[in-house]
Amino acid sequence: MSTIDDLYPISCPFCRISEAYPPEASPIPQLPDPEKVDPQAHVLLSTSHVLAFLDILPIAPGHILLTTRHHYNKLSDLYNASLAAETDTASQREAQEEARESSRALGEWLPIVSRALCKVTGIEDWNIVQNNGERAAQVVPHVHFHLIPRYQEGRRENAGKGKVDVGMLKSWRMFGRGAREDLDDEEAEELVGLLRRALREEVEGAGGGKAKL
């Protein structure tokens, strides 16, 4: 069974992002340096349990990944009540508690990040996709959710410099390198700034009080 001490595989790109961008006082980082890792990471959320950043091969402008801070290969590797009942060491109990909190955090942040994404992009429809294993198109073996905007007719059909295929934006095609373009870092920096601002508004709420997440 994994323990807290071995939850950061060095070879995992999402673990490298997690280590490079530790949690701050606020869950939404102020001005994180995207060049702390290679390729650049445009981070919009960094908490004790989850992170969110732009996909470097977006299916559509605003494609976000929400992932766990600690390393879990598949969704089934998160909190398991049966295993938790059988733990007999402090490190195993700590690992199961971290898995429980990570599971909760994913559920809490998915709707919040979704609302911020809709506000910034103007979309009304989007996919939330989570893949488990190579046969299910999981490329990075670290639990993560894709939030993929689906643009309406006449709304931002071309992204930035016009590199994204309009037909792809309107299609239901989900995965595959041929359907995706490399993220433009300049456009990403502008977009992630808007997403951070929208997230702060979501977290703080209209009355200015911070959500307890």
Rank of each mutant, 00 (worst) to 15 (best):
G162E: 01
P13S: 06
K74F: 09
D38W: 01
G178C: 10
R135A: 06
G205W: 02
T121Y: 00
L110F: 08
T3A: 12
A116M: 02
P9H: 03
E86Y: 12
M174C: 10
Q96W: 15
D6Q: 03
G62L: 05
Y72E: 07
C118Q: 08
N73G: 07
E19S: 09
L194A: 15
V50W: 08
R135F: 14
M1S: 04
A25S: 15
L31A: 13
N158A: 09
L31C: 14
E101G: 08
E101Y: 08
P13A: 06
M168D: 11
V143K: 13
Y79N: 12
E19G: 05
A41C: 13
L54A: 09
K36T: 14
K210N: 06
V113E: 07
E134A: 14
G209N: 05
V120A: 03
A90Y: 10
I17F: 00
E201N: 04
E108G: 00
G122N: 04
N80R: 14
A159H: 11
Y72S: 13
R16H: 05
R104N: 09
R104C: 13
N132T: 07
L45Q: 05
Q40N: 14
S103W: 04
D88C: 12
D5H: 05
P9G: 07
R69E: 05
P23W: 07
E86Q: 14
V37P: 04
W172G: 08
G176P: 00
R150G: 04
A179K: 07
C118E: 07
D55W: 06
L110W: 12
N127R: 11
V166N: 07
K36N: 13
S2M: 13
T47W: 13
I28D: 03
S18I: 03
V143S: 09
E153P: 04
A188Q: 11
E19V: 03
Q30S: 15
S76Y: 10
R150V: 09
R200Q: 11
K119R: 06
E124F: 02
T3V: 15
Y79I: 11
A84N: 15
R180E: 01
S2Q: 14
H42T: 07
P9C: 06
P149R: 02
T68F: 12
P22L: 14
A84C: 08
I10A: 12
K163G: 01
L169E: 06
P34W: 02
V37Q: 02
D185L: 15
R156E: 13
L191V: 02
N127H: 09
D165T: 07
H71N: 13
Y79E: 13
F53V: 04
C12V: 08
Q152S: 14
I4Y: 10
F53C: 10
S26T: 04
E181H: 04
E24Y: 00
A198W: 04
E134P: 00
L31Y: 08
V43I: 10
P149A: 07
A60E: 03
G62I: 05
T121V: 02
R180G: 10
S11Y: 01
L106M: 15
L45D: 02
S103C: 04
R173S: 06
L65T: 01
D165S: 12
N158E: 09
I123R: 01
E202R: 00
S46Y: 01
R150F: 06
V139H: 05
E97H: 14
V129P: 06
R150S: 08
S48P: 02
V164G: 05
E86G: 11
V164A: 08
L213S: 03
V143F: 03
I28P: 05
L213H: 02
P9T: 03
